[in-house]
């Protein structure tokens, strides 16, 4: 294994990892994401509604300026978790198609880190499924965000508690209540 200055970011694939069936597309990629590819994938003659969510990286976290963000993942497990989320959304909301893609590695501020698209015969199911797919992904997908603050250390975020998470550098746990 090549050595790297930051072992935390060692698990980034050099090429996109995808899993595609006729109605589900899952992707983890080091490349730029395409919302257009997502809506094209989910389009279907029997779908009257497509809902697209585009998540972009922000330049602050609780008033602290963020310099850069990176995502790492346990790719085989994250792929199977995302596929299972997509499958359950498909069944639960009677969707036509689901597309979930997440970017890995460094994502410059204002660029897209996640794209989710769902299609359904009618809008209500599509809205609900789009939101639920995102919430389930944030809760379960084995993907981690490292935020580096301007003039400071990096911090591993944790979606579940909304706190600062674990600070990189001295190994000290630093948690700031919401």
């Amino acid at each position: 294994m090549p050595t790297t200055n930051d072992p935390a970011l060692a698990n980034i694939p050099s090429e996109p990892i995808t899993c595609t069936t006729p109605d589900i597309h899952i992707e983890l990629t080091p490349h730029t994401l395409s919302p257009l590819a997502a809506t094209k994938f989910v389009s279907s003659p029997s779908a009257g509604a497509t809902v697209l969510f585009v998540g972009t990286t922000r330049d602050y976290f609780k008033n602290l300026p963020v310099q850069s963000l990176s995502y790492t993942s346990y790719t085989p497990l994250a792929m199977s978790t995302l596929f299972s989320i997509a499958s359950s959304m498909l069944a639960k909301h009677d969707l036509k198609k689901v597309y979930i893609a997440h970017r890995l590695g460094e994502v410059p501020i204002e660029e897209t880190s996640i794209v989710i698209a769902v299609s359904a015969p009618h809008r209500q199911a599509a809205w609900r499924a789009g939101e639920e797919a995102l919430e389930e992904t944030k809760k379960r997908a084995e993907i981690w965000k490292l935020e580096k603050f301007v003039g400071g250390d990096g911090v591993w975020r944790a979606n579940r508690d909304g706190v600062m998470g674990v600070q990189v550098g001295d190994g000290e746990e630093k948690e700031t209540a919401v």
Binding site: M1, A10, P13, Y74, P76, E142, W156
Partner: peptide, 28 residues
């Protein structure tokens, strides 16, 4: 990268996020 083959008589352990920062390793 993940899925590193462990040495004979060993298992592979992968560290992610805070665990990799603490151990300064991604796997061993």
């Amino acid at each position: 990268m993940v899925s590193t083959k462990p040495a004979p008589g060993h298992f592979a352990i992968l560290y992610f996020a805070a665990a990799s920062t603490f151990t300064a390793k991604s796997t061993e």
